[in-house]
Write a protein that binds this DNA or RNA. Structure first.
Lengths: 192, 192
DNA sequence: GTCTATACGTAGATAGAC
DNA sequence: GTCTATCTACGTATAGAC
């Protein structure tokens, strides 16, 4: 664990404000006030507001990409890979709910890195879809509409940032487990 | 079907822009350009930018509230009520994917109507939770973690606005049906 | 109902003192 | 590394002509 630099602190504080009001509505003066300094002083640590957004989003996006690649390498069943992906989302989101808000809602304000981000996201969805498709092929997953399944699961995982802060009684392990249960088996009571 | 007024057109166009860039990043000049007029001219039809946001969000929020109340009145099973709620979300979202983006992401920029909106949202979640709780009590729904179920289903439904425009091959009826299938029964292949 | 002109505030960012 | 002072651009909104 490296120690947090002043730049890191600014980025972390910015992410918090971006979650509350969105990237565009947060001014450098807002951020400075929250940091206990003047706006001009921020520029001794960062080059621009845009750079802050880039740091927040790209580092998270790359974390998801490498996490999923790692999961794909294993020889587990596709259902177990899916459980690992759920755990990946819970873990990354638990560590940084503020940043996840920007990843979900402020990516369109990226400038130079926009295309790169869109590429990462698109590849991620393709890999995710692949797990589901292989699961269907191997008779682990129902032969239903893949896009509906993908959308449903991914929407839930992408919304975790909104919900984890409100449910701190569940630790990440419990949450992953219960979430897997619901996403994979549904909520329907089978007749015994 | 009443005919669309110029004000309606402005609101619809604004919703589209708000979805693309967020409320704060859209300027009255952007909106005017998209409408083919000058910014000052917008003010002959609307009183402020804030009013536009209010119209978009509150009308949708009230539509959800009255829709859910209607569903609650019926004598159906709780699983069938849940299916009706899913259909409600699909129908409202299909008609106005742009507005749904503001409902989800720009509500914090409401001023006078913020408290009212938060009340509607909170009540809606309570009613939704109630359907699940009654379902568990009546042995229709598994006796799992209600909050995880609520979060998972509601997150998916609230994200529909992002996904419906990309999947126009599915009509609302098919989509509701397939979504109910996945949200209620999961994706797990049962061993026959 | 749309325009031009404009008021007034505030945005991101820089210069240079300490 | 933080400050004050400041630049330039652009934000919402109004006044008044056509």
């Amino acid at each position: 664990m490296k120690q947090e630099t002043r730049k890191d602190e600014i980025i972390r504080t910015a992410a918090k404000l971006f979650k509350e009001k969105g990237y565009s509505a947060v001014t450098m003066r807002d951020l400075a006030t929250e940091m206990g300094m003047k706006a001009a002083s921020l520029y001794n640590h960062i080059n621009s507001k845009q750079e802050i957004l880039k740091e927040i989003i790209i580092s998270l996006a790359e974390e998801f990409t490498s996490g999923l690649q790692e999961i794909q390498k294993s020889n587990k069943s596709n259902i177990d890979k899916l459980k690992d992906v759920i755990e990946l989302h819970v873990n990354i989101t638990s560590k940084n709910t503020y940043g996840m808000a920007s990843l979900n809602n402020n990516w369109m304000h990226l400038k130079e890195k926009l295309e790169y981000y869109l590429q990462l996201r698109s590849n991620y969805e393709d890999e995710f879809r692949n797990v589901l498709q292989q699961g269907v092929k191997n008779n682990e997953i129902i032969n239903g509409n893949i896009e509906v399944m993908l959308f449903s699961i991914l929407s839930t995982l992408r919304s975790l940032y909104l919900w984890i802060p409100k449910k701190e009684d569940l630790n990440p392990e419990e949450l992953s487990q219960k979430l897997s249960e619901v996403l994979i088996n549904g909520i329907n009571k089978k007749i015994d």
